[in-house]
């Protein structure tokens, strides 16, 4: 839970002066931050601040024009998205991006893709590595289903499940990759209080029990302030604040970014 210092070498992920623009529209402007191992790092900011763009840059879905992204000291730039997955970066999406025609089990199994190695010939014949890997990984999937408490929906096509459960399945699919870094894009967006609390519990369990480093993009301030180790605030693609939650909460720049400035109005408390 503690803030692991970067003293034992380079940080897990380091983003340096990354700029991203689409033609004239600037999405990110010289954004720098680093995430240490075991940390729960959070990125917040108003709509369109560039939070998801950062994820897309880390995944190499977007190619930033400037700056560098270092994973354990090695550049991620120029890789294909699937290669970032192979290096241990998993992700959930803001709008659920599950494979709608597959069952819960198959969706989570598809997260095991990078942890399996058999090719199509072995698969077609159900011979050798294919049958062995498929069975082994089926057990791993059961562990994840157990961890996320979604046993009852195991065989349902995900398209039929309630929203909150779909979010959980998506988290399961990302966990199935056994990642070192998990990018969570608004995991509690659109959820009610109970579902939010469940998700918060899962996120803390992932940090404590599985020891996975996480970056959390979220609009729910109370959640971020409760569970994040460090918070970065973005506004119009620029970083305007970074630090422990309590510090960021009282930052004047942050408050004006969220609520606007009138100069005279009293500053309300966030969260």
């Amino acid at each position: 839970m503690a803030l692991v210092s970067a003293s034992n070498g380079s940080p897990l992920l380091e983003v340096r002066d990354v700029s991203l623009s689409f033609k004239g529209l600037v999405a990110l402007e010289k954004v720098s931050f680093h995430v240490d191992e075991g940390e729960l790092y959070s990125i917040i900011g108003p709509n369109g601040a560039g939070k998801t763009s950062i994820f897309n840059c880390i995944n190499q879905v977007y190619k930033p024009q400037e700056g560098s992204i270092l994973w354990k000291g090695e550049s991620l730039l120029g890789l294909k998205p699937n290669q970032t997955a192979e290096r241990g970066i998993a992700r959930t999406f803001q709008n659920i991006e599950l494979f709608a025609h597959m069952t819960v089990m198959e969706n989570i199994l598809s997260g095991r893709h990078v942890r399996m190695s058999h090719g199509w010939i072995s698969g077609a014949l159900w011979w050798g590595r294919a049958s062995r890997e498929e069975l082994e990984n089926r057990f791993k999937v059961e562990d994840i289903i157990d961890f996320l408490e979604i046993e009852q929906w195991r065989r349902y096509p995900v398209g039929l499940l309630p929203y909150g459960v779909q979010k959980r399945v998506e988290l399961g699919r990302a966990l199935a990759m056994e990642p070192e870094l998990l990018l969570l894009d608004e995991p509690v967006a659109g959820m009610n209080l109970e579902e939010t609390e469940d998700m918060a519990r899962f996120i803390l369990d992932i940090q404590d029990e599985l020891g996975i480093t996480m970056i959390l993009v979220e609009h729910d301030m109370s959640l971020v302030m409760d569970i994040a180790d460090r918070v970065m605030v973005l506004d119009f693609g620029r970083k305007i604040a970074e630090g422990p939650p309590q510090e960021v909460q009282t930052n004047v720049g942050v408050i004006s970014a969220y609520l606007g400035t009138t100069g005279e109005a009293p500053i309300p408390e966030l969260g």
């Binding site: 998205p81 699937n82 709608a100 598809s110 893709h113 990078v114």
Partner: peptide
């Protein structure tokens, strides 16, 4: 077929 970008991010 279902989600090509998500598939790539999952390592496909």
């Amino acid at each position: 077929r279902d989600r090509d970008i998500a598939a790539e991010v999952m390592g496909v």
